[in-house]
Structures are given as structure tokens and as C-alpha cells.
């Protein structure tokens, strides 16, 4: 049984989550199970991707502000090339745009996560440098947790639920892009089998953020106290919300370790893409990856 303070914390964190994120699990599941009037546009090859870029432009994060991508104009240089080479060039161009699109979505989610953290009780009373450290190390773990809500075994919802990009298509891209999403699908399949709802996820994401063992924290005890109150609230909430699944809490805590591994792998891949592909990384993401692990 949870005391009054714990219940208030659960409610405040759930409210903060619902206000901060444009997409949540309930919305995503309605779309993924075909319970909405308009089904998402399915992206399963380069042609459908390019069609989606045109039709979903308003919802694709990188096009919201009519931003033109540098790589796009650079690659548009006219020169006579054999058809095969031309096709290859188009493919590379589309892959680069897809990568930028993923980056913009990540940046958008980092912004939402920051708003969520700020709305969490007592977060803003922490030392500002500690708030930065907590976010720096948490955002990718939180991002892959939230991404699982938008995934099923066949693909991933994009463009605020207006598009669905298939797992096979992502796998068919050239290396290293093809290696980017597959580990996230594998994690999502295991994670989604726990059947968490948005109220559980809100507390789990809060627990990811308020973590006392992030490198460089100044005031560890105060972060640990906040972490402890969230973890206790999560434990009580899971018992009440999933009375038939008594091992859900320890299983969920194990996922924190899986997420750390997933982020380490992801950071290595981003480093590889940066070196091999000569592609630019958004300044916010650069800040986050710099000296991370």
C-alpha cells in the first residue's frame, strides 16, 4: 500500500509525462493495431520513403521549419553518370536524409525529455550542472525506452504516427546504417512483452533520469534521495497496476542494464558513421556524445 506522498509523486510524474511527450504508448498502440481512422503511410523501400518525404513533409521533424539539408543541395550537382551509378548516388542521398531525419527526431525527443525532467518534482532544485549531467547520460536510455512504444516486430511509427517504416527496409540499408535500428527492435520486443502502460513508463523514465551513479555528479546524496523516492513509487505502482506479475519490478530494473549496453553500442555506431560517412551531427547530439563513455 502506498502512502499519500508516494501517490502524489506517481500522479505528478504521470502528468508531467503526458504533458511533455507528443507521442505516448496509448496513442501509438491505437495506430499500430489499426484502431485509428487513418492508417499510417508505410515506408518499405526508397520509393515509398521519397513519397513519404513529400506527403508527410509537415510531420517529418527535419522539414518542419522548411530547413534544406546541406547534403541534399551538395549532392544535386548535375553530372553525366551511368544509370547504375546514378541510382547508387540517389540511394546514398536518401540514406543521408534518413539519418538526418532520425537525428531530428532524437533532438525533438531530447527537448521533450528536458521538459519532462523540469516538470518532475524537485528536479529543478538540483544543482544546474547535475541536471545537465543527469540528462546527458539519461536521454539515450530514455529515448530507446520511448521508442519501444512506437515499435512492433515489423516496424516503427514515424512522423508523429503518420508513417510506419518497416524493419526490413531499415535492415536493407547499407552498413553502418543497416546496423542502427536492429538492436533497438530486439530490445523493444523484450521490453514490450512486459506490457507496461504510460503510467508505468512515466516512472521508469523518471528513474532513468534520476540516477545517482552518473559520472561527474557533484551532489550525489541529494540525487540518490530523489532516485530512491522514485524507485519506491515505481515498485508500489507496479504492484498495484500489475497485481498478477509480482516479478515485474526486478525484471524492469534489469532493463536498466540492457539500456546502458544499448546506448554504449549506439554511441560506437554514431562514432563510426561520423568517421566513415563525413556526415554532420546536430550540435545538441554532439554535446551529449562528447566524453560520454
Amino acid at each position: 500500500c502506498m502512502e499519500g506522498d508516494g501517490k502524489t509523486l506517481v500522479r505528478q510524474i504521470h502528468d508531467a509525462y503526458m504533458k511533455s511527450f507528443t507521442m505516448n504508448k496509448a496513442k501509438a498502440r491505437l495506430i499500430l493495431t489499426g484502431k485509428t481512422s487513418e492508417p499510417p503511410f508505410i515506408i518499405h523501400d526508397m520509393d515509398t520513403f521519397q513519397l513519404a518525404e513529400r506527403t508527410l513533409a509537415a510531420y517529418m521533424a527535419h522539414m518542419v521549419k522548411g530547413e534544406r539539408l546541406e547534403s541534399e543541395s551538395e549532392l544535386r550537382v548535375e553530372h553525366v553518370t551511368p544509370a547504375v551509378e546514378c541510382e547508387e548516388l540517389q540511394q546514398r542521398e536518401a540514406e543521408a536524409r534518413l539519418f538526418h531525419c532520425c537525428q531530428s527526431t532524437s533532438v525533438e525527443t531530447v527537448t521533450e525529455l528536458t521538459e519532462f525532467a523540469k516538470a518532475m518534482p524537485d528536479f529543478q532544485t538540483l544543482d544546474l550542472n547535475d541536471q545537465v549531467t543527469l540528462l546527458k547520460y539519461a536521454v539515450h536510455e530514455a529515448l530507446f525506452t520511448l521508442l519501444a512504444s512506437c515499435m512492433n516486430k515489423d516496424g516503427l511509427l514515424v512522423a508523429r504516427g503518420r508513417g510506419f517504416i518497416t524493419r526490413e527496409f531499415l535492415k536493407s540499408l547499407r552498413r553502418p546504417f543497416s546496423d542502427m535500428m536492429e538492436p533497438k527492435f530486439q530490445f523493444a520486443t523484450r521490453f514490450n512483452s512486459m506490457d507496461l502502460d504510460d503510467s508505468d513508463l512515466a516512472l521508469f523514465v523518471a528513474a532513468i533520469i534520476c540516477c545517482g551513479d552518473r559520472p561527474g555528479l557533484v551532489d550525489i546524496p541529494v540525487v540518490e534521495r530523489l532516485q530512491e523516492s522514485i524507485i519506491q513509487a515505481l515498485r508500489h505502482h507496479l504492484l498495484a497496476n500489475h497485481p498478477d506479475d509480482t516479478f515485474l519490478f526486478p525484471r524492469l530494473l534489469q532493463k536498466l542494464a540492457d539500456l546502458r549496453e544499448l546506448v554504449t553500442e549506439h554511441a560506437q555506431l554514431i562514432q563510426e558513421i561520423k568517421t566513415l560517412e563525413d556526415t554532420s551531427l546536430h550540435p545538441l547530439l554532439q554535446e551529449i556524445y562528447k566524453d560520454m563513455y
Binding site: K65, T114, L128, H282, P283, E287
Partner: peptide
């Protein structure tokens, strides 16, 4: 502080990083 300029900004106000 300089190393995490945008994160600082986001925490102190809600400037959209897309604009930066």
C-alpha cells in the same frame, strides 16, 4: 558549462534546439 551550452539553455528556458 561551455561544453553543454544547449543542454544548459534547454534547462533554463525552452528554446527549440531545431532553431540553433
Amino acid at each position: 558549462k561551455e561544453k553543454h551550452k544547449i543542454l544548459h539553455q534547454l534547462l533554463q528556458n525552452s528554446t527549440s534546439p531545431v532553431d540553433l
